[in-house]
Design a protein around this nucleic acid. Structure first.
Lengths: 107, 107
DNA sequence: ATAATATATATAAATATTTATATAATTATA
DNA sequence: TATAATTATATAAATATTTATATATATTAT
């Protein structure tokens, strides 16, 4: 596997590996939203919202456009949703166990 | 979106958001391997390999079985590979730009 | 020009992750 | 039992992430 891609994939997975950023992606599924509306919808402060948005933007997951005083964010990589669906399927298949077992079973 | 799933998805994405752990998943695509072989294949120390394996195991991504003194790890959630494919496709589609642009474009 | 609104960013504190080193635990064998 | 081989884990240091607070920047309206 290409080292370049490996790093990029890890970055992308890491940035999506945060509940707030998953919620942000979800909130943008129907289309672009301005920062304030995302913050309101998610019950976050303006600042933390902006910081998470930046984390996603600088890695190419979101794009932003200015419209007057507002900035509208939108999804740049719709594959995010496919990934979340994969995980949902995986969860379903894996079972409704509360916690994965962590034993090694003596032989 | 279910809060329970949200947390689980974030955890899974986060744990896969590390180059070494992606490599580990790759190394297991053809089948189970013992810790020592994974470490050798990836050029890692025994300890750090074991630590990454544990991170993946306790979150249900890998399972382990003991065979004599060795422990064989294998993939518990093959969806991981689908996710990596998604990212590969996303990368391809997104373009071969070195770095995503991070400007907001004044209006 | 000033004020108001919306967003971004600098900074620092708290927390989490990563890695290395040393050691413990497990299994097989002499 | 003692030793070797394999894997796991405790610990600590280095680094990174997350969040809050305060402040800066950009835009519009007065």
């Amino acid at each position: 596997m290409d080292e370049r891609f490996l790093q990029e994939a890890a970055e992308m997975l890491k940035v999506m590996g945060h509940p707030v950023r998953i919620k942000i992606a979800q909130s943008l599924e129907a289309g672009e939203l301005k920062v304030g509306d995302i913050a309101k919808a998610l019950g976050l402060t303006q600042s933390v919202t902006s910081q998470h948005l930046k984390a996603m933007r600088v890695r190419g997951l979101l794009s932003a456009r200015r419209k007057a005083a507002c900035v509208f964010y939108s999804i740049e990589r719709p594959e995010i949703y496919k990934i979340i669906d994969c995980i949902r399927e995986s969860s379903r298949r894996y079972g409704e166990n509360d916690e994965p077992v962590d034993t090694l079973g003596r032989s």
